[in-house]
């Protein structure tokens, strides 16, 4: 992208994120490990409510949900409920913040990453490379793919230093429907 294209693209994503109060979407997650014949595939639904409530609910092939709420993760692992405090882990906090922000797409001002932009006929891509050495030990890069028309994130890819990666593809997205806060309790 040229400098002016980047400015226009960022503007569109930020504007879209601003008007996005809630998101409901299906997702399919592909875990790619070099030595496997097939990617490990799981799927479910994701719900987001501004400013920072997120619930990931895996339904296939197992039931597992995690709610990001303030400095806690509320987990329901097939009926086994637990709570994880992430307040004192800077790395974990960063990873979670990434997940929350990537849903909205608006993470261009994150000082912890070097961002570069790419375009293709169908989508725009932003690639985030961590500056912090410790984070770079876990994530080589973090990629967001945006629809060109509505500037919504439709794919997230997290590449590990080994080049194995996790890819999450969204589909059937509903914007700004009413979502009760009770969805985000365990």
């Amino acid at each position: 992208m040229s400098a002016s294209e980047i400015v226009a693209f960022k503007g569109k994503v930020i504007a879209s994120a601003k008007t996005t109060k809630t998101i409901k979407t299906d997702f399919v997650q592909y875990k790619h490990l070099d030595f496997l014949a097939d990617d490990v595939k799981t799927s479910g639904k994701m719900v987001f409510k501004a400013p920072n409530l997120v619930k990931w609910e895996y339904t296939n092939p197992y039931q597992y949900s995690v709610i990001f709420k303030e400095d806690q993760l509320l987990i329901n692992d097939g009926g086994t409920k637990s709570k994880v405090d992430i307040g004192n882990s800077k790395l974990f906090k960063k990873l979670n913040q990434l997940i929350v922000n990537s849903v909205k797409g608006n993470m261009f001002n994150d000082a912890d990453f070097t961002v570069s932009f790419f375009k293709s006929p169908k989508y725009n891509k932003a690639v985030f490379i961590p500056k912090d050495k410790k984070i770079a030990g876990y994530i080589a890069s973090f990629e967001l793919l945006f629809n060109k028309d509505d500037a919504q994130v439709y794919e997230v890819k997290m590449v590990e230093p080994s080049q194995d990666f996790t890819r999450i593809v969204f589909s059937n997205r509903t914007l700004n429907s009413t979502i009760n806060d009770s969805v985000f309790s365990n």
Partner: peptide, 22 residues
Amino acid sequence: DYVYKAKIEVYKKNFGGILIIK
């Protein structure tokens, strides 16, 4: 590709994950 949902209980704390063996 041997792929399993894992549930780990260690001293009454629970963790989950995916175990992959090849």
